[in-house]
Amino acid sequence: MNTTEAIAAGASPAADVARASDYIALLKPRVMSLVVFTAITGLLCARTPIDPWLGFAAILCITIGAGGSAALNMAYDSDIDAVMRRTKRRPVPAGRVQPSDARALGLTLSILSVGVMGLATNWLAAGLLAFTIAFYVLVYTLWLKRRTPQNIVIGGLAGALPPLVGWAAASGTAPLNAWLLVAIIFVWTPPHFWALSLYTCEDYAAAGVPMMPLVRGRASTRWQILAYCLVLAPLGLAPVITGLGGVLYAAVASLGGLGLIALVARLAASGPRDDVEPVAADGRTTLYKVGKGARRARDVFAFSLAYLFALFAALLIERLAGLAPLSPGLIPQVFP
């Protein structure tokens, strides 16, 4: 709809004008920030000297690739975004950006990010970046998201791959320690997003997205969150024995893992009437400001995010400070 048509339809002249910030919003900057953070950690954990400018270019490519895939996701999902409170103000469902424009932006950024990554670093990193983008758009967005409650379990691989791309950009290899970082994010993804869906599932129901609480029920989802976290906590400690993490990382992974399991156990012990009051007293609902009944799920959602951030921050700090890993790796030939 152009401006003249909008005015004719009774809309405010400025209501559907795309601003520069709308195109930034298409790239999902908040998601992008975690992708960048984990990619930088992977790049530095490779322990391979890389020209700082090429390292910057690699991280920029991962950032742009994440943004491009987010724009493609928003172009395709505009119909379901329009009926969910959390997403209905996004530029495409709000009518400020046409889906075709979002698609063009996403495709352009995706292709450029992969091409520049190949030129700046190596084609293994570029191939992994292309796979990550394709997996997020084709496998998660187009195929799994609307069809199965396992959508974020399988689709979570796309969000887990950035540290591997960063590692490959620096070293040209993809060793098991890099895949271990992928595994940590992969196992972390379902409990994190299921905790969110416990108190936002009404939105998902309206949009027809088969999130786990809608398909299997809240109680089953809570127990599955606990099961995943019981795997995640020891997995989070694994880098200590594979020669990746040091004392700081061991402390963060131990305390964080215990804290996460405690919160998830409290959530699993919730009664059947919990998580059904997502709206705060003032009638507003956000990711973090929720009613009393949804606080246990909100706490797991927030703490799991902090836990993942702390794990990667610990690795990053150890690498930047030159702190040695606790062990050289129990199986050095497997975890070089």
């Binding site: 401006t3 400025a14 004008v17 601003r19 520069a20 030129l119």
Partner: peptide
């Protein structure tokens, strides 16, 4: 609308200049 268009053009110009500089540096 004119103000928004100018801002979009500036963003696009900045992105294009940044891209050229990036390729040059690489």
């Amino acid at each position: 609308a004119a103000k928004a268009r100018r801002a979009r053009n500036l963003l696009l110009a900045g992105a294009l200049i940044g891209f050229v500089v990036l390729i040059f540096v690489i």
